[in-house]
Design a protein around this nucleic acid. Structure first.
Lengths: 200, 200
DNA sequence: AAGCTATTCTAACAAGCGTTAGGTGAATCA
DNA sequence: TGATTCACCTAACGCTTGTTAGAATAGCTT
């Protein structure tokens, strides 16, 4: 962070722009989101954004990166907070719960990762893939640990099971509306189906 | 269909435009897809598209509509072709198989429905929702039939199970690459997990 | 008070967008 | 053969886009 940006961080304009951008990226996609739209939501004019970001692509890159890393951090924390006697399937359930909570509650950044990633410029995709793969590797370890502990049947294709669960969670963004089940209940239903389906 | 368009159908330009549009919508999103890009892929100039369609929105509307209706028709056909002794869970498995096959094999139209729908102009969304809900209702009936036949536990939330499966299938578009499992094998793994997870 | 620096605005730019009007040549019909 | 229709093209329109340069404002420092 340059010295030039000291006051920026205090006022939080940088973060405010990211939040507004994430919200618009999520609902309209990348191309349909304009810098003038982002600026308006922050009480700024379009040109002013270039004091904080070097380009529109740069905003998207930061939104994607922040979304994945926050998610990753949250999920690791939730799994780490489990009591000592917890099973490996408990860990998968806890990860699912926190992943869904993040998606549904402070979810514009996560939703942008899910919905807009494939429309992003290739350059941006490459940058975002690093953090993505780290998060993916963590989930892989959750599943292999559970199988090594004998809690998942040996004939299950772990990649498929994991991707199936991810799909179910991601798709939630397409239909979820407040008022019915909350993230926690939803996650328990998902893991109820999945874990019973692959359990030993 | 107007008489004006008789020769159009023979040469198939109308369909060719839809296919090119679906392919571009899928990979780039709605706004990032230009009429000039669609035209180029058909060996046309941008203005010529207006002989076949009244607007860009109209193209999207037809792509969405065609995608859902083809999918719906295909899935019904696959379920209808089951032998007389098939169970209701067999029906769900057959529907899953055909749904995935359609998505992965002639999938630009289906993929557009999944990826671009939420970015479409509200007017277009409303139009597309009609066919969507019909397809959704069909899947609902598959699940309720299976439960009424005693093949699914009574304490399962059928909507959640169905949406979970849909999510798993839709997410496949994000990671699937040719060369590994084919659509049929994939569907069997999905239903293997899901149906064991909710079976009686 | 004067100067400096951080932050924003104004005003414009070239490029690309969806869309339209009118023209062109080939096929069809009288 | 002449007139008409089909399918496409050309050339432009008004508008919006991301981006930039330079001016303005406000706060801090000396």
């Amino acid at each position: 962070m340059t010295a030039q940006h000291k006051r920026t961080e205090e006022t939080g304009t940088h973060v405010k722009i990211l939040a507004a951008a994430a919200s618009l990226f999520r609902s309209r996609g990348y191309e349909a989101t304009t810098l003038r739209g982002i600026a308006a939501e922050c009480g700024l004019k379009a040109g002013s954004i270039y004091y904080h970001f070097s380009s529109k692509d740069e905003i998207l890159a930061e939104v994607l990166d922040f979304g994945i890393k926050e998610l990753h951090r949250n999920v690791r924390e939730a799994v780490g907070a489990l009591p000592a006697g917890a099973s490996r399937c408990d860990a998968i359930a806890a990860a699912t719960r926190r992943h869904l909570e993040c998606m549904l509650e402070f979810g514009d950044f996560t939703a942008t990762n899910i919905r807009v990633f494939s429309q992003a410029p290739v350059e941006i995709q490459k940058r975002a893939l690093v953090a993505r793969r780290e998060y993916e590797a963590y989930w892989k370890s959750l599943f292999t640990d559970a199988r090594d502990a004998g809690e998942i049947r040996g004939d299950i294709d772990l990649s498929i099971a994991r991707l199936f669960l991810f799909g179910g969670m991601s798709w939630t963004l397409e239909w979820y509306r407040d008022g019915g089940l909350d993230a926690r209940e939803l996650a328990d239903l998902y893991t109820g189906i999945l874990l019973r389906g692959i359990a030993n």
